Simulated assay, not measured.
Amino acid sequence: MTKNIIVTTRAGLGDVLLITPALRAVKECYSDHKLIVYCLKKSHREVLLNNPYIDSLRLLPPLYLWRYPYHLFSYLFNNSRRQGHFFDTQKLKHYSMRPNAIPVSWLYNKNVKEVVPELFSDLDVRLENKNVQLFFTKREEAKARHRLAPYRNTIIMHVYSRTSVNHMWSIEKWEALVRELPEFTFIQVGMEDEPRVKGAIDWRDNKMGIRDIFCLLKYATSFVGVESCMGHATNAFGLPGVVLFGDTSPVHWGHDNNINIYKNVRCAPCFHHLNGDPCPYTHECMRLITVEDVKAALIRQVNVQQVMAKHVSVHQPADY
């Protein structure tokens, strides 16, 4: 009899990205089980499309879940329990994934990607690959290359976070960064209601879906932005980027492909205490990050990417 492992995605896009290494580990460790993922939002499903480690990807709304009443019951039961608990029978295990709700006492000095497998509390899940997992079609990749082809030294920029106002750096500093690096092409992505950075190419809500934006990262020179889903997505491609941290810590939410700028002031990290509410002090954690800090880090990462690109071209077989 086929056994089902059912996962429900919750919270934001960044949380969905951060569970992808664990989903891969679950499938690799339990290849004889069927891994079913229910998505709370359509955007969650877009992030997980084409993932070869997921056997069935479904939307969560009751309109769809009524087709699977047993799964619906387990989901409702699971919602009444604490994070990481599950409804368990011999045929089905149901896990609710919400990394940003993990109590800070669980984290210590571990990255969230390393903690997520522990939410599969009764499964022996070994995390061999810690990278975020994103998979695109050839058509999606061709579109991304075509969009970026006219530009040189492309820097994908994302300056806004819907998770916490304390993630934000001032627009004036973003604009100063663009002015001081005219040799780079800054392309701002995000939603249309997010603040615009003057001097950057404006691709906010440019009729692109979230998959199109993530795919740009695969072919860009670098990335710069606040801690958000975009910074997490860079990890899928090993893209050398620069991420600014304020109320969260790069120990928990950062990736080793990025330079994570963090001032570690006395009151930080405070994300789990404030839960997105505005800083009651002076937002010192982000104010202390200077334009020069970000500029120097970005130049360094662009140089790293250029060296990587030369290494790939040297070792690429010639076409005959």
Rank of each mutant, 00 (worst) to 15 (best):
Y151D: 05
Y151L: 05
Y151E: 10
R152M: 05
R152D: 13
R152S: 14
R152C: 02
N153T: 01
T154N: 11
T154D: 00
T154E: 11
T154K: 14
I155C: 09
I156H: 04
I156G: 04
I156L: 14
I156E: 09
I156W: 04
M157T: 12
M157D: 01
H158S: 12
H158N: 13
H158I: 00
V159L: 02
V159A: 12
V159D: 05
V159G: 02
V159Y: 00
Y160Q: 10
Y160D: 10
Y160L: 00
S161C: 08
S161L: 06
S161N: 07
R162W: 06
R162K: 11
R162N: 14
T163R: 11
T163N: 13
T163G: 15
S164F: 08
S164N: 13
S164G: 03
V165T: 15
V165R: 13
V165N: 12
V165A: 15
V165L: 14
N166F: 07
N166C: 14
N166S: 12
N166V: 04
H167A: 13
H167L: 05
H167V: 01
M168P: 00
M168Y: 08
M168G: 11
M168E: 15
W169A: 07
W169D: 10
W169P: 08
S170N: 13
S170Y: 06
S170W: 02
I171H: 08
I171N: 12
E172C: 01
E172V: 03
E172Y: 01
K173A: 07
K173M: 07
K173H: 13
K173V: 01
K173E: 11
W174E: 12
W174P: 05
W174I: 07
W174D: 11
E175H: 06
E175V: 01
A176S: 14
A176L: 15
L177P: 09
L177S: 06
L177E: 08
L177T: 01
L177R: 02
L177F: 06
V178G: 07
V178K: 03
V178L: 12
V178N: 10
V178R: 03
V178W: 04
R179S: 14
R179N: 11
R179H: 12
R179Y: 09
R179F: 01
R179P: 00
E180A: 13
E180K: 11
L181H: 01
L181K: 01
L181I: 12
L181P: 06
L181W: 02
P182C: 08
P182F: 01
P182D: 09
E183R: 05
E183S: 11
E183I: 00
E183N: 12
F184I: 02
F184A: 10
F184W: 02
F184E: 03
T185Y: 01
T185H: 03
T185K: 03
F186H: 04
F186S: 05
I187F: 06
I187R: 05
Q188I: 07
Q188L: 10
Q188W: 05
Q188N: 06
V189F: 09
V189A: 07
V189Y: 04
G190R: 01
G190Y: 04
G190Q: 02
M191E: 14
M191C: 08
M191Y: 09
E192D: 12
E192H: 07
E192M: 04
D193F: 08
D193Q: 12
D193V: 02
E194M: 09
E194H: 08
E194N: 10
P195F: 03
P195S: 09
P195D: 11
R196D: 00
V197P: 06
V197A: 05
V197Q: 07
K198G: 02
K198P: 00
K198L: 13
